[in-house]
Each structure stands twice: as structure tokens, then as C-alpha cells.
Design a protein around this nucleic acid. Structure first.
Lengths: 207, 207
DNA sequence: TAGATTGTTAATCGATTAACAATC
DNA sequence: TAGATTGTTAATCGATTAACAATC
């Protein structure tokens, strides 16, 4: 890990390519061109070829990129070949939707624990996950070496849930609620903002 | 609407600021500095001041920006002051979570219709929305002038749901499923990819 | 007045794009 | 061979940052 850190933009785009390639692989396609990758990622095809060729000659002229091979190389570049445990806060509709989706599992993220504040839900099962009480957050996070916490709680509960995770040692908070979440230095908060992205898409439709 | 279109990056950042300002307003704060806005948006404070000052002197030195005033100005710049109807496909856990959240409502997006393929769900209520059959998509989209469709369906059903919306005249597809969705020119597909964003966050944690 | 924060400059760096030879 | 697509160059444009005077 002595190499230079990638520029923010490059790391963001490579992550995006990886996600698209994972889906492409599922569809059974063996190769993909920068043109097709461009259509799904909204990144210019020349930019894609430049991003990739900075790390080696991964493609075949006239053919495109081998999907499996490219997945492997990008995982190497991003150092994300391993499995990682995450904690999911909230077993309501959103929590259940996340727990039952393969969206994280496909990328090596294992939902290692599910927490809820509601005593009526604690002890029940959502998919194959047991709903645990908040009192167990600290112990579970440490035992399972969880570094990522996902907030699928109502906005009013978001900060408290984040604080529990941070106290337990979580380093990355993934915030699905619309609430703003504060965190100390050293903890990264990443907030989904679908409404913001929709405003952006709408702007280009309206103009 | 004779003005130049904003560069992609500027439009994306302004959308993000707007989303954060809307939450800030809810918390009761009247003003916000570029420093605080930077912490929530992960955009450099100088960049924020540059983005805003390109359109006028919106701030007060020594004080910051008036939240209400700034919300108004950014909405003007993005042409997104109005209300817009959207169609939600899928009344499962994810659809129910979206329907019950204020995340779209806070930004002027009204969920005008909810559709599901499951006959057992059609006719039931989710929140205050009636679940409609897919056969009514075309008529409803045209009647309610819906230009945005949100996919909250299982991956295997995503393309079919998108095609129905596109045939009915929807121009923006918001894809919450992990499936890749194809659309003809003139229709923008915007896919959430939480796993991709998580890989990105993890890269900077690991390096 | 003192402290805080904007608005703006100037300099650097990375992103974007078109174009095309190389080559599968 | 013919068609397709990569890898790469060169030129332009936008993003980023530090610094600081202006001013609330």
C-alpha cells in the first residue's frame, strides 16, 4: 500500500465501473466496450479508456474489455477484494429492503448485524438476520470487526444511531436518512441524497 | 431560459447544497457558513463561495449565508421552484419506505401514483397512496403529467417497469434497483449505486 | 474595536474531448 | 481484408486551493 492515493475522481469512477461490470457479468456478457460502459456510467468513453490504461493495457482492440478480468483488476486497484462486515441500523421498511437485497452482498459486504430500537421487533427475524437491541451495538461491532454502519432509521433517530456506531469504533457511516449527521474527524459520513440527485437530473431536463 | 446551461459539476454541487440547506432549515438554523456547508457536502469551502458568488453576493461577511434566502436563489438558478409529479413503481419494502419518507416531498416532488404488479397488493393502501395495477401506468402518467419515474422493484422486473414508464412518456428514470436499465435517447436513467459509493468510501479508509 | 467570514484573485492541477494510429 | 475498438496524444476547459483584502 505504498502507492499514491488515487485522485478522488478516479476512485469514484472506478467504483462506478466496478458496480456496472458486476451487473454486466450477471447478464452473462463476457466482454464490454468503453462505449457501452459509457452509456451506463455517464462517463465519456475516452475518459474510461484513459482511466483504465493508466494501470495497464486491459482491453483488446476491436473487441473490448473482458468483464471478469477487468473486475479483478479494478478490485486490485481499489484494494477491495476482501469481505467486509457492516452493521445495519433500523429494521423498518428501508432496513428490510436493504437486508433482502443483494446490492451490498454482490460487492463483498456482509450484513453482520441488524439493530432496532423497537422492543417489539427485537428478537424477530428479517430475512435470515436476527434483530438485536441497541444495547448490543458496542459489543457486536467490536466482536465482528465492523467498520461500516448503515443508517436506515427515521431522520429523528439518525444522529443517535450514528453516535452509537461511532462510539463502538465504526469508521464509515452510510446515511440513508435525509437527516444531516455529524461525526468527529476520522469518521467519514456518506449521505444518500436521492432528492438532490433528482433535482440535478431535472435541471438538465428543464434546460 | 436563454441562459447558458450550467457545467455538470456546478449543477451537481448546487443540488447538493440545496438538499443540505433544506435540512438545515428544518433544524431551525437561520444562517450557515461556507465552512459548515463544506463539512456536510464534502466540498471545499472556497469552492462553495466561488460557486455562489458566480450568481451574486448572497452572503454577509462575518455572518454567513441566510438559509432561506440561499434556498430561494439556488432554486431559481436550477429552475426547480415548482412542484413535479412522479410515479413510484413497486410497493414492497423499498417502495413503502420511499412513499412514507419526506425525502422527495421536501424538494417539491409529489408521489402522484404507486404501481405494483402483484394483484394481492393492487387496491390496497400504502400510506395515503392507492396501489394501482401496471395496466394503468400509461393513462396515469399522461393524465398527471408525470415526467419522473422511480423504480423500487426487484432487479428482474426493473427493465420491464422502465419500459412501461418510457412508453407512457416519462423522461427521467430513477433506478433504485441494482439492475442495469436501458433507455432510448432523450430519456435519462439515473441509478443509485450504494455499493459503488461504499467501495469508494472504503478505498479512502483502506489507504 | 475585534473576530469572523465573505468575495475574489492567481496559480496549479485534474478532467474532458476530439482525433487517429495501432491492432485485434 | 474490413470493421471495430483500444491506447494515446494534444489542446482546452473547469475544479481546486491558498491567501487575503474587504466588510459585516
Amino acid at each position: 500500500m505504498q502507492e499514491e492515493r488515487l485522485p478522488l475522481g478516479v476512485a469514484a469512477r472506478l467504483s462506478r465501473y466496478l458496480q456496472i461490470l458486476t451487473q454486466t457479468k450477471k447478464s452473462g456478457k463476457r466482454t464490454i466496450s468503453s462505449q457501452i460502459l459509457s452509456e451506463y456510467s455517464n462517463v465519456n468513453p475516452t475518459q474510461i479508456r484513459r482511466d483504465l490504461s493508466a494501470f495497464g493495457k486491459f482491453g483488446k482492440r476491436g473487441v473490448g474489455y473482458n468483464v471478469d478480468y477487468l473486475i479483478g483488476r479494478i478490485k486490485e486497484i481499489l484494494h477491495t477484494s476482501g469481505q467486509h462486515n457492516l452493521a445495519l441500523m433500523g429494521s423498518g421498511n428501508l432496513g428490510a429492503a436493504i437486508a433482502s437485497s443483494r446490492i451490498f452482498a454482490d460487492h463483498g459486504f456482509n450484513i453482520a448485524a441488524l439493530f432496532d430500537t423497537d422492543p417489539a421487533k427485537v428478537g424477530q427475524r428479517v430475512g435470515n438476520l436476527l434483530v438485536r437491541p441497541l444495547s448490543e451495538v458496542g459489543e457486536t461491532v467490536r466482536e465482528k470487526k465492523i467498520i461500516v454502519g448503515v443508517l436506515a432509521v427515521p431522520p429523528a433517530a439518525a444522529q443517535a444511531a450514528a453516535d452509537l456506531l461511532i462510539d463502538a469504533g465504526v469508521k464509515i457511516i452510510f446515511n440513508y436518512s435525509e437527516a444531516l449527521v455529524d461525526a468527529p474527524p476520522g469518521v467519514a459520513v456518506h449521505s444518500m441524497s436521492p432528492a438532490g440527485e433528482l433535482l440535478y437530473a431535472l435541471y438538465f431536463y428543464l434546460t
